[in-house]
Design a protein around this nucleic acid. Structure first.
Lengths: 306, 306
DNA sequence: CGGGGACATAAGCTGGGGTTATGAGTGAGA
DNA sequence: TCTCACTCATAACCCCAGCTTATGTCCCCG
């Protein structure tokens, strides 16, 4: 993330979550008072909070009138940025909630790191709207750990990544984790018209995760040869940062890239003739077809076998 | 966003930004004390803050030892979710900062709503690492407004979307806003093997923005006929929510979809034989080639003409 | 065996955000 | 025109989260 000398800290320049939620509520409901009521606080509290947020940002956010409150132009812009933060917070929330309720919950899920990080919270948000009262617990670990938990009846549903299904488990492919090649927009590859081929990819020094990591394995299996590292880094985030800084082409899981792709801060380079993907599977003990909440969750994860 | 009865409010279950930043610093630096120093607070403050975050989440996040602190397994998971929030906050920050410094700044940008919302903050984050001391101001408005500002020398660089370039301006296409068709994973289209064609798209009732909106215009221009609305909604977010809830296929700008696509909560349905995209252009007064910071920013926005 | 890290604990201050109580516009209807 | 019902703003007060300083404990290393 290129931590520049940035004195002050984000927290002092960005309103806190409560204020952002309040702003969204005002936008939706068109009135400070109504928004306050929805969040369970009083109207003066809401009024003061919005005001102090406007002071902090140095911009008027809402037009007050005796008939209600509407967003300013600037307010509309700010509200959309705020919504992104709140959505990220929702992901955090359901993830953390699942993590917390270890023991005593109704649906116990065991998942690989990648899935637990990027996919599960989204599914759980969806599950919550369908079955609001289901408490979920989450354990993250590798395939072996997931299998152990399922077989010991300490988990109801598991998720694993990779080519093999652990023994004793039935599985269904629910999606694929695409490993993709990206560069900064300034890189020459970003202007290519023809897709890369395997030979070219194998011949080019790339920004990679360390040897043995999931994405690296997928890449080398697909190439049928060892990859040539330009830099080797031990975290997905570090790889992303290097790529963003223009150090060179990087290989990353598509799941780790959110906004960077759609905002064109990183460009996806098409690759042809190489199967750069890894199956993501739901798993359960052989015979024990998922039922109840596990079945609901499984239904939500059904994606096309693209 | 399907506001369920969700009592309590996110803010009470999710640590505040300061705490999340602290957690990231601890993860990066491997020590509470060092992290504290980096954020400009004392070691006991950091210690207590992390502890209260652990209490709040009900999970141990860091392993303390007299030699330093390392993340727990759960801590690593939580840290990655936290990073998403902090990144969204950074986007908010640079956007808001640009919005605030209206008058007295060195680089004045005028941009269409879509670009100001989704693209500009990312570019400004990148610009900040290259030119940390450049103050940027941002005005959001439609093409006409952008053109006015540029011609009145009240802006140094503009960004507009749509097929035409306002008179008196030079332009360069920097990217394309792809309008795409998405459905929930449960929708039959999510399992199609063949791309949609124009006739099929025109014949199917779709979840759309209101008539006259940008994405709707692109869609109807591409189809050469009016679209058939299943539901008409007045905000991008509302369209997204409806699609997520499985109400039907929706048409949205790719820029508005972040995590939903990569996490497969919404599935992109390929469409063939239809040009569902709109040029995004940088613009400046004819003759006045951008120089200085404006030139730097323009350089950052260069993306392939995909 | 004495530093010097690293983290924990304790006591005290401060301020942001909450509350209640009240005032003051505006518009709609009797 | 008066009054009610709605909006938002202001004032006075309270509380607690989070900060600070000052100290204690543990462990490793020279």
């Amino acid at each position: 993330m290129s931590e520049s000398a940035e004195r002050g800290g984000l927290a002092h320049r960005v309103p806190d979550l409560g204020a952002l939620e309040l702003l969204l509520a005002v936008a939706r409901l068109g009135s400070l008072g109504r928004a306050a009521r929805e969040l369970g606080i009083t109207q003066p509290a809401a009024s003061s909070r919005i005001r102090s947020m406007e002071r902090q940002l140095g911009v008027a956010l809402v037009d007050r009138s005796p008939r209600g409150s509407r967003l300013t132009d600037a307010g509309a812009l700010v509200t959309d940025w705020a919504r992104r933060i709140v959505e990220a917070a929702e992901v955090f929330d359901v993830g953390a909630q699942a993590l917390r309720d270890r023991r005593d919950s109704r649906l116990r899920v065991a998942a690989s790191m990648t899935i637990a990080e990027y996919l599960l919270p989204g599914w759980l948000i969806a599950l919550r709207t369908a079955r609001p009262d289901t408490a979920v617990s989450l354990l993250a670990g590798n395939s072996t750990v997931v299998a152990e938990r399922l077989l010991a009846d300490e988990a109801d549903l598991g998720f694993v990544e990779g080519p093999t299904v652990p023994a004793g488990l039935d599985a269904a492919v629910i999606a694929h984790d695409h490993v993709i090649v990206v560069t900064a927009p300034s890189h020459p590859w970003a202007r290519r018209r023809k897709p890369l081929d395997a030979a070219e990819l194998a011949a080019t020094p790339l920004i990679l995760r360390e040897k043995g990591s999931g994405t690296r394995q997928v890449l080398e299996a697909a190439l049928g040869t060892l990859a040539r590292p330009l830099i080797e880094l031990s975290s997905t985030t570090a790889v992303k940062s290097s790529a963003l800084s223009g150090a060179g082409p990087a290989v990353l899981s598509e799941l780790a890239l959110g906004e960077e792709l759609s905002a064109r801060r990183l460009i996806r380079i098409p690759v042809e003739g190489v199967r750069l993907r890894r199956a993501l599977r739901a798993v359960w003990p052989t015979g024990h077809r998922p039922t109840g909440p596990a079945r609901d969750l499984l239904g939500l994860t059904r994606a096309p076998l693209a």
